[in-house]
Design a binder for these strands. Structure first.
Lengths: 338, 338
DNA sequence: CTTACCTATGAAACTCGTTTCATTTTAAGC
DNA sequence: GCTTAAAATGAAACGAGTTTCATAGGTAAG
């Protein structure tokens, strides 16, 4: 834990600090012989340049922040893994911002990019997390930023998204094709853009099939398994029960299946259940969960790649990348038995 | 995105940069009237001090790195969430180091603490991740560091652990009490300390019960669900099949249950399955998984709290904190039916 | 009215790399 | 061997804060 600075290396190898710096970051500017001397000293001492000194001068932190509501969530975890991968490849470190849905923490992390502690920001919540000046146009205040999962309502921010509405339609069409007409929806919190879009898809599919939307069939959860359980309980208490349930997340679908099991209903015999996301555990459930797959890995990778371009000052960067969802039919959905 | 520096604030409020700095970090040293002037300028401009400038001078980064093999893993995710919580409270940011079991990435992250980019490090792999000088005693080279999950083989590093061996014994005793004698083990990679200890517990319990250890009953997995599936398949091919399986992780137990279902065995009717960890999905499986709970949240919190003490230069810090495991009996284990 | 001490403040030094600019060294061409 | 261009190198400035040290102003005690 003895700190070695560039001056020590300079002294040790008999050159100036400038030359040491060049040896390490622009070796082509240094002659082979001095390069060798310097590297020897570096190796002997185990010298690692202090990144703060460098950052201060270059105005680059080589950090990116990622702001997400909950790292424990499989969807988020899968995305962040991909991000981290891509980031390290490009020499960036990732600062983790798990906000636990706390708006103060949103801005705590958001301001990292404002204060120069990070060069870019990846946001998976539907709000711009840093402080903005309402008197100036947003466009001018945007740092390198990419948004995904929950869309921010602004045309200026770069996004990597899926078509949530279409995904929901796919799920519904699958259930409709199986003959179901009494299809319930277990949605997420009403303010979340993903839920809004999926709900639109749910209604659209119903209307196109000539089925009336029944509000008693729409239950609100919080995307977590426990809320799926409770939502299912509510549905089971209805006089006229649904024969199929479209849950807006796999976690809620898993919760719903647990409720059905608890009350002795067969899935998909009595009730079909379809989820959304395709997390790892979806295919490990019994019955295996039918779901709409989000390309989580790809989403993370794309987000980071776009962010890298933005941070490099690249001008022609995709503003809006839409990735495809896919219906994965497994065992939790089946034909209507009347 | 116009950067405001401390000098701008100084000029705006008609004081020196030193006073601005004091106003922000040691307000008690500044008179009320100047404090007011300065704060006005700060609020108007939205000034946020550049942390690199500060870090350079104070030699404190206010960052911690956490090095773990895979953030996607529920165990790790739960721990890191707790860490992040504790870290933010204390004003630290967390740098995510997902190594994907890649040793090069181990040291990439480990060196962050050597190079001053982080003030402390939390390591969840069984290796010291930063470069060490073999000629000097390790003790002198240790930065603030706390180790958990997979123990590093050194008495000098601070640890937060569970008694893996005892945990395994608890699992085995549960199965033995249910009358099982043909109990298989699905372990993790042989080099991992957690697997070694749990295997010791497995053998110990067997021996104490007067049952011979049968090596055909010990299968190696990688802690992931797929490996649990394959391990179970192997066990099912044995002429004499086990009636109970102790999996060293919930993920493997979940995989094993999937294999059993696939080949039409009943859990726990034909085979009892017990896991280890108690991840969220354990109680959402069908049948609900019996397991040994690790206090993941507490582990993360403790790790961070100890690290904070170490970073503060606190001398009397716990070297070794052992947290209790707990047997959670659910539905995947049952009495031997002969 | 001094002396003594505290409080508030600014100038300047300092942290550690990078980069510019000027200078020296080397190599190439004739 | 000399000129010229290119390559290599060092001194010093720079980035944005914090901290030390010195000083000015103010107050209380004697």
């Amino acid at each position: 834990m003895v700190k070695v600075s560039i001056k020590d290396i300079a002294k040790l190898s008999g050159v100036s600090a400038a030359t040491v710096s060049r040896t390490l970051s622009k070796p082509s500017l240094v002659s082979k012989s001095t390069r060798k001397k310097v590297m020897k000293a570096v190796d002997e001492t185990g010298y690692k340049p202090n990144r703060f000194g460098a950052s201060l001068r270059t105005q680059k932190s080589n950090n990116v922040v990622v702001v997400m509501p909950d790292i424990t969530n499989q969807v988020n975890a899968a995305i962040i893994r991909a991000i981290e991968n891509e980031a390290t490849k490009a020499g960036y470190s990732v600062l983790l911002g798990d906000t636990q849905n706390n708006i103060e923490r949103d801005s705590y992390y958001g301001d990292m990019v404002t204060s120069g502690q990070a060069d870019g920001i990846l946001v998976f919540t539907p709000r711009i997390p840093f402080t903005i000046n309402k008197d100036k146009p947003l466009r001018e205040q945007l740092p390198p930023m990419v948004n995904s999962c929950e869309e921010i309502d602004s045309e200026y921010v770069h996004k990597v998204v899926i078509d949530n509405q279409l995904g929901a339609v796919k799920a519904m069409q699958h259930l409709l094709e199986l003959g179901h007409t009494k299809i319930a929806a277990v949605k997420g919190p009403s303010m979340t853009p993903s839920t809004k879009a999926r709900l639109d898809g749910y209604k659209q599919a119903l209307i196109e099939a000539g089925i009336e939307v029944d509000n008693r069939f729409i239950i609100t959860g919080d995307y977590g398994p426990e809320s799926g359980f409770q939502a299912m309980e509510k549905l089971l208490r209805l006089k006229e029960r649904p024969t199929a349930v479209f849950c807006f997340s796999d976690d809620m679908a898993i919760g719903a299946m647990n409720a059905l099991r608890e009350y002795d209903y067969d899935v998909p015999g009595d009730v079909s259940v379809i989820g959304f996301d395709d997390i790892t555990y979806a295919s490990l459930m019994s019955p295996k969960l039918t779901t709409i797959r989000q390309p989580l890995d790809q989403m993370g990778t794309q987000c980071m790649q776009i962010l890298l371009k933005l941070m490099n000052g690249n001008k022609d960067v995709e503003k809006y990348v839409e990735l495809p969802t896919e219906l994965i039919v497994r065992q939790s959905t089946g034909p209507l038995v009347s």
